[in-house]
Design a protein around this nucleic acid. Structure first.
Lengths: 173, 173
DNA sequence: GGCCGATAGATGCAAACGCATATAAATCGG
DNA sequence: CCGATTTATATGCGTTTGCATCTATCGGCC
């Protein structure tokens, strides 16, 4: 997380887990602490989720692809659009989709309006598997998030991360 | 997204990016949306950070290990403690540390009080490299986070993610 | 139309990963 | 104090990943 997963903590000095940031001096330092905390929360959550039974059948990145496809109104997504949802290189995603196709979970076809492109959609089996794993997954998530944060806090967190994400996506360069 | 980082979006139905959650019906659904948003923010941030020049010399997971070691008061960490900071399996971490040692960035020694254990610490070169990358890294982070969230919002986000993380770590089983 | 740089995807290859397992030391129970 | 269980790390092995590169198509421009 993969992708992983992959990951990156923050800056020049770590906090001990039990030692919350005291007086965040500079704006730069505050931003770094914020990112570190976000990142570490994600790592902790991810560890738990991956350990659950929901991911025996499907690796995390693979599930994410099915999930992205499941939420797409037309049912079809370009491979390069899929790449935005997953923390994977283009080549790795290409092979991942290939594997999913071999397993009968997705279908590929050449994009009608662009001879270079490939469209991907879920098969029936892929949709079923996504739903099944999704249900378990949602339960696991709720059992971790609900005891940690009130509904109001969850709404705040949702709002802040959404704001962060859209800003990052639209950032110049 | 190390780290691998992998990753996992949320539940049974996706949101289009431009479509913020309208009326989060059930608590379970709210939790799932919250996690999805957190996760996607992390993916978006991570993509940007990995693209920066700061990670040419060192993969994300490798940096995270140096970072964890840099923040440890005693300077030494057990390998299994390191594992909590990184989204990697135990075996992968073992080999990652081995690589770092070959590159002269960390040092290993048998734990004095536990014949099974291995202690790891930064070498001088490792500390220097961590500091150098850390500085760049912090700048990149700030340039992404600062335009997105006010200082107050960052403090809120820091608090919420910290709360989430400690709760997840302490959750039963 | 024909050329040129940019973009989408596929592929060779070496590096990195996770799973299962091996080894060794610590801990627990009697 | 001894055997059984658990914990910490290492290693064999097949799979997955990223980088560099290749091919094909697109889009702009003359």
């Amino acid at each position: 997380m993969p992708a992983k997963a992959t990951p990156a903590a923050a800056g020049t000095k770590a906090l001990t887990p039990a030692d919350p940031p005291v007086a965040p001096a500079s704006p730069v330092r505050l931003a770094a602490q914020t990112w570190e905390s976000l990142f570490r929360a994600q790592v902790a959550m991810m560890r738990r989720l991956q350990a659950g039974p929901a991911f025996k059948a499907l690796a995390l990145n693979e599930y994410d692809v099915l999930f992205a496809l499941s939420g797409c109104p037309s049912g079809w997504l370009r491979q390069n659009e899929l790449n935005d949802h997953v923390l994977l290189s283009q080549s790795s995603l290409s092979r991942l989709v290939e594997r999913l196709e071999k397993r009968g979970l997705v279908q590929r076809m050449p994009a009608p309006d662009d001879g270079r492109g490939v469209l991907v959609q879920l098969t029936e089996a892929g949709r079923d598997l996504q739903k099944q794993i999704g249900r378990e997954h949602v339960r696991d998530i709720a059992s971790l998030v609900a005891p940690a944060l009130t509904a109001e806090e969850q709404r705040q967190l949702l709002r802040l991360t959404e704001k962060l994400r859209t800003s990052v996506l639209n950032a110049k360069q």
